[in-house]
Nucleic acid binder design. Structure first.
Lengths: 228, 228
DNA sequence: GCCCCTAAACTGGTATGGAAGATTGTCGAA
DNA sequence: TTCGACAATCTTCCATACCAGTTTAGGGGC
C-alpha cells in the first residue's frame, strides 16, 4: 500500500503537504522534542497560513504515528517508547530479512559496481567523522539493495517505521559508525556471494544494534521517553 | 447495585473518526467500488455533517491508500492494481513468515487448546459454506498466532496492508475455503511440532494463493482494476 | 451535423468564527 | 496554609464562506 502516502496530484504542492514535510523532518531530527505541544494556531502563525492546512498536516502526522492528537486537549509529539521502538525494529527486521533473501537469490555481478561506491563514500564519511552524511549514506545503501531486487516499495513502509528508530539514532549521533560500515561490508559480501543465510545473519546483527542505542538514549534524555 | 456507566468512554469518538470507520468498511467490502468518486459535499449530506469532518476522514483514508485525492478534481476509491496487491502480498508474507518462525520457537502445549477451537469453528463454516464467517475466522486464526507469541502489533500493520488484499478476496468469495482450512491445519501442526521450516513453507503456500484470486478477480470485474 | 467558445456548475483547498471541552490561575472561605 | 468554586483562557473540533482550478453543459457559428 501503497506507496504514495500523498495521493495528491504532483503538479502543485498544497500548503498542507509542505507543512507535513517540514514538521516530519523536525520531529525526526528532534528539533521538535518528544512531548512538545504542537498547537494548530501557533503553527498557523509560523507558516503564515490559517489553522486549517496545519490541522490537516497534523492529521497526516498522527496517521504516521509521529504526533498524538488528544481531542479538545492538545496535540503533542509522541514520546519515544521502548515498546514502539522494539516493534518498529521487529517490523524492519522482518521486511529487510526478506529483502536480503531475495537479494542473495537475484544478485548480479554488476551490483558490485552500484554498492561499492556507496561503501566508499561511507568510508570517507567515517574518516571525516561526518555523522549526518554517514546516516544518509546508510539509508541509501539499504534502499539501493531493495531497489536492485525490485522491491523498493518495501522501503517506503520501512521509512514510515524508521521514523521511530531514527529519533533514537539522532540521540546517539556519536555511535560507532565505523562498526556500522564493517557490518555493511559484511552484508554486501554475503549478497555478492549469493549466501542468503550469511546475509540474513549479518542483517539481524546490524539491525539489532538499535537496542543498545535505545538504552543509551534513554539514559541521556529520559524526558524524551514515555514512562514505562 | 453500582453500575459503571459505559457511556464514559476513554475517548469519545469524533465525527471524523466515525466516518473513517464507515467508509473504510464500505470500501473493503466493495460497497464503494474502485473508481467511484467520493465527493466531500455528497458525503457531508449523507452523514449530516459539514464538509470538514468528511474531508478529514478522506485524508486519513488517503494516507491508508484507500482513496486518491486529486486536488480540485475529484476524490476516488483507488482502483485495485496488480502491483499494489502483489506489494501487499510481499509485505504480509515477510511479516508473517517472521511471526511463524517466532511461533515455532516459542510454542507451548496449551496453544493447541487455543488454536484448535478456531479450526473447529472454521470446519463448521466450511460445511455450512458460510464464506463471510470463514473469512472472519481466518483472520482471527492468523491474528491469534501473532498474539500467542506477543507480536500482535504486527497485525495492526498487516491489517492496513490487507485492505488491498481483502477487496480481491471479496471479489472471489466462492474460493475454495476447504483448501484454506487444510492449509491452516498444516500451519498449526508445524507450530505444534516447533518446526520453523515447515511453518514457513506452509505459510508461503497459503499466502501465495492470492495470486490466483487476483487473476480470477480481474477476469470477473475488470473495471475494478487499474489499467496495466 | 460538427466544432469552438464560454459560462455555469461542479471539484477540492483555505480562511475564519464559534462551540465544547480541558486547563490554569485567582479569589475566598475554613 | 489548604482546599474548592469559578472564570479566563487555552485546546481541538466543526460549520460556514469564499477561492481557485476543472469539468460540463449549452449556445452560436459554420
Amino acid at each position: 500500500m501503497i506507496t504514495y502516502a500523498q495521493t495528491i496530484s504532483p503538479s502543485e504542492e498544497t500548503n498542507a503537504e509542505r507543512i507535513v514535510a517540514v514538521l516530519r523532518d523536525e520531529i525526526v531530527r528532534l528539533v521538535l522534542k518528544p512531548g512538545d505541544p504542537v498547537s494548530e494556531s501557533e503553527m498557523a502563525v509560523r507558516f503564515g497560513v490559517s489553522r486549517q492546512p496545519v490541522r490537516e498536516a497534523l492529521i497526516r502526522l498522527a496517521e504516521a504515528g509521529l504526533v498524538s492528537v488528544q481531542a479538545r486537549k492538545a496535540t503533542r509529539v509522541v514520546r519515544i517508547s521502548e515498546k514502539s521502538v522494539l516493534n518498529a525494529k521487529f517490523i524492519r527486521e522482518a521486511l529487510e530479512v526478506e529483502i536480503m533473501r531475495r537479494a542473495a537469490g537475484l544478485a548480479q555481478p554488476h551490483w558490485r559496481d552500484v554498492l561499492e561506491p556507496l561503501l566508499e563514500q561511507q568510508a570517507v564519511a567515517v574518516l571525516a567523522k561526518d555523522l549526518r552524511t554517514f546516516h544518509a549514506l546508510d539509508d541509501a545503501f539499504h534502499r539501493k539493495i531493495a531497489e536492485l531486487c525490485e522491491v523498493e516499495f518495501v522501503w517506503d513502509l520501512i521509512d514510515a517505521q524508521k521514523a521511530q528508530l531514527d529519533r533514537v539514532r539522532y540521540m546517539t549521533l556519536d555511535a560507532a559508525i565505523d562498526i556500522n560500515l564493517i557490518e555493511h561490508r559484511e552484508i554486501a559480501q554475503a549478497i555478492y556471494d549469493r549466501d542468503a543465510g550469511a546475509a540474513e545473519t549479518a542483517l539481524r546483527n546490524h539491525v539489532g544494534k538499535i537496542t543498545s542505542h535505545l538504552a543509551l538514549g534513554r539514559q541521556r534524555l529520559p524526558d524524551y521517553f514515555a514512562p514505562k
